[in-house]
Design a protein around this nucleic acid. Structure first.
Lengths: 355, 355
DNA sequence: ACCTAATATGAAAACGTTTTCCCCATAACG
DNA sequence: CGTTATGGGGAAAACGTTTTCATATTAGGT
């Protein structure tokens, strides 16, 4: 027989209402229960090993102490459910959530609105992925608009969407490129290129990085050769099919293209580290020395970035911090519904061997 | 105002009991509801956009359609919440769960028994970690014993514990070592060593791998040099402190030890791939060529294993399959409580550059 | 036509909490 | 000594379902 609040009440010789009050003391603020009774109740509870029934708690419209998180991928991207990227994010999320007594529910990409509507989660973290410029843009916009209207606590991570106001956490891409260029100047590279995703709809981050890079090179009087700024399809590069081991292929094929055309390149900035790995592979196969013949600067700082050969010099996204920040924002928002906010997080340059 | 079953009932001109029956038709088997009423109810429900209240459903003792998973780490291991390892596992879990209409709840290491007891999850996946031979062994044994008694659906992954019967999924370590030795013979290596975790309580997998390897080398008339079988502390190797970037350090320090003592080694089998990475790093720094001077065979096939330099020849654990299998086992067990089972999964040798 | 059996539906209890409202002491105050 | 605060506690309603049991209707068999 499950022991319920009734049993505790009987054991402690108080009413069930009192027991309930004792347990909700913290949340409900100043509740009048004498120290003595509190003691008795606690003793009884721990003696009987009482745990409140979750269903009942939920039914009475309490917090579920659960934060949902979902990875919203455009359908076309048949990627693994958890990329290395989201793994780091989850790391921070899980850590901070459990520190605050919250649990994490992995919510399917399709039905997170349902979970919000039915109060199964107190808040939601959406690991957005190329929200703009993708087939589901309209649909998602509508959803988030509704979330806004209903004052739901939610936040989108790494999404960069500005058609409607969305609470979001993003890396400061501009600052990241500044760091890269600073490093480039220091090292004296002159022929700088960019390699992003070779797909019709590259992520906005990649696009921004490419543009910002051109700007900054210009401003620093370095030559800008449009032919070695590759992002999206075009320039005669065939689209790289999305497969399981996403992005490596972009690097490999992009580098192939650059190499075969013999464009002069000092330093190649890659849209992310996985792309760099593809570049490394091609380079090894064609005896191109990195950083000797060409330096490479990645983005993100993926797991084990230090252990590749060469180890990757990269603009690190503090993804764990993103996770932590997301949880804290959600907690704040739950208390004060009006509150809404977006964050721009500064990345960091990690200098290793590749540049 | 949330629309409840009452509203649907009113709209469809039936009682709430009838509405409930309509919706639980599948689970409750043959329930007597006329096709006509069923129609009306469904229409009303979809018109009002009805979704059952989760708390109420739960309170009445239904399935939560939620599977919990937890990563049980010995306290001493201050590792990141989600290793590369569990990421791959989660991948399979999440995939299969959502295919079956289940959600995944990330449950804190401390309170999964609570979640089971309170029916917040229908089943549990424990990503076990060195359950035996670790400080929490007794505690966990007791928990699992109780789970057994209560016929809870749960399964432990990669744990290798045999003091009490536990439904578990493990990699067939012996078979893995067979694969390794087969490869060793083919390549003609003669001086084979092993490098596992340099900690007082190495994981059982590492220990088994080391032992099996010795056996098989013996049986194939290859020399066995105990000095180059490193697992756990001893042999004068100082313990490698567990830090964030776990395992790399074991590889680095272990290799340092082997190298400084100038033991002759052809081929080093590593307890896992991350250890290999540490070995690679040391090798690079000391101009040891892999596989030229010494081959390396890893275990697990971590993310990006193909993109390291050298790419890692490794005994791949099909972790995604583990996840899928776990979910399917749980589903079966939920239907038929008596049923209990353990699985041994065959790994696969992935030949790459390092050996 | 009558009785039985099967089928469809409704009424109401129950699930275990939280929370509101009310009451009773006791203390404080004049 | 009488009145008013105030702190502590209980009774009971409410949350939204599921499920049991009873009842009403219909069909089937003799």
């Amino acid at each position: 027989m499950r022991v319920g609040i009734k049993d505790v009440a009987r054991e402690a010789q108080v009413s069930i209402g009192t027991v309930s009050k004792v347990f909700n003391a913290k949340s409900s603020g100043a509740i009048k229960i004498s120290e003595q009774t509190r003691q008795r109740v606690h003793e009884a509870a721990s003696k009987l090993n009482y745990t409140p029934n979750y269903g009942a708690t939920l039914l009475r419209g309490q917090s579920t102490k659960t934060i949902g998180f979902t990875i919203a991928l455009p359908a076309e991207h048949n990627r693994s459910f958890l990329s290395d990227y989201s793994k780091r994010l989850l790391d921070g999320l899980g850590d901070e959530a459990s520190r605050n007594g919250y649990q994490l529910l992995v919510v399917n990409d399709k039905d997170y609105p349902y979970y919000m509507d039915t109060n199964r989660i107190d808040g939601l973290v959406v690991i957005g992925y190329s929200l703009d410029n993708n087939p589901r843009e309209k649909e998602m916009s509508a959803i988030f608009q509704r979330f806004n209207d209903e004052q739901y606590p939610y936040i989108v991570i790494n999404n960069l969407f500005d058609k409607i106001p969305i609470p979001q956490i993003n890396v400061d891409t501009f600052y990241g490129v500044e760091l890269a260029v600073e490093h480039i100047l220091k090292k004296g590279y002159r022929h700088v290129g960019f390699l992003g995703e070779i797909t019709p709809n590259p992520q906005r981050h990649h696009t921004e990085r490419s543009t910002f890079l051109k700007d900054l090179l210009n401003r620093n009087n370095l030559p800008v050769d449009d032919r070695i700024f590759i992002n999206g399809t075009g320039s005669g590069i065939p689209e790289v099919p999305r497969i399981a081991q996403y992005s490596h292929a972009d690097g490999y094929h992009g580098m192939n293209y650059l190499h075969e055309n013999k464009f002069p390149i000092d330093c190649l900035v890659c849209g992310n580290d996985t792309i760099s790995l593809g570049v490394f592979k091609y380079a090894r196969e064609h005896n191109i020395n990195i950083p000797g013949d060409m330096a490479v600067i990645g983005h993100d700082d993926i797991t084990n970035a230090e252990y590749f050969s060469p180890s990757i010099t990269t603009i690190r996204q503090p993804l764990e911090d993103f996770g932590r920040l997301a949880v804290n924002y959600l907690l704040k928002k739950m208390r004060n519904r009006d509150h809404s906010e977006s964050f721009l997080i500064k990345p960091e340059l990690i200098e290793r061997e590749s540049a």
